[in-house]
Design a protein around this nucleic acid. Structure first.
Length: 160
DNA sequence: CGGCTTTGACCAGCGC
DNA sequence: GCGCTGGTCAAAGCCG
């Protein structure tokens, strides 16, 4: 499986819960432990979403397929969570029933079309709701950067 | 100069 | 059909 979820790194904020949007119902929220198995978690989310019907609203101007979606609730003073990937902001909108605007980000990798939305919780401003849409089709740059010295060492040792 | 953010305009879905 | 709302576009400006 080369489609990995946003990996946990040492400086990443640990989500306190995640939500699986499952239309037509509202978000289904589950508390998670800090040592969560991210691969199986996101795999479950992908499986759940693939079988679902279309969700409310326009998915995109050109894209017709519905990508998998998963939302993380993170208690953090920072809006932008460092998940190891590079993101470019392409929009911000004020949303109804919330004083906090919603920010829209796209993965900057040219072949990757993953998007994420970031919004502060309407009732608890200390909670950041990050919604990922789609799965990255490339490795995490930051993770590969931190692993490359280790990989080089392993290659060196394996030559003996 | 390239990459990024900001921000107003635009578009499409939905409910009435 | 119309208005509201959420999502996206794209020009302008900022920054390293």
């Amino acid at each position: 499986m080369d489609e990995l979820p946003p990996p946990l790194t040492q400086n990443i904020n640990v989500p306190i819960s995640y939500s699986l949007p499952s239309p037509p119902h509202d978000l289904m929220q589950t508390q998670i432990a800090s040592d969560i198995d991210w691969v199986s978690l996101l795999s479950a989310a992908v499986g759940l979403e693939n079988g679902s019907t279309k969700h409310k609203g326009r998915v995109g101007r050109t894209k017709k397929t519905i990508p998998p979606r998963i939302a993380f609730h993170t208690k953090s003073p920072d809006d932008i969570l460092d998940d190891g990937f590079r993101w470019r902001k392409y929009g911000q909108k004020a949303v109804k029933n919330s004083i906090h605007p919603r920010s829209y980000y796209r993965c900057t990798h040219h072949t990757c079309y993953v998007k994420k939305q970031i919004q502060r919780h309407s009732k608890d401003a200390s909670i950041v709701v990050t919604t990922y849409e789609g799965i990255h089709n490339h490795p995490c740059e930051q993770l590969m950067e931190s692993l490359s010295p280790l990989l080089r060492q392993l290659q060196f040792l394996s030559s003996f």
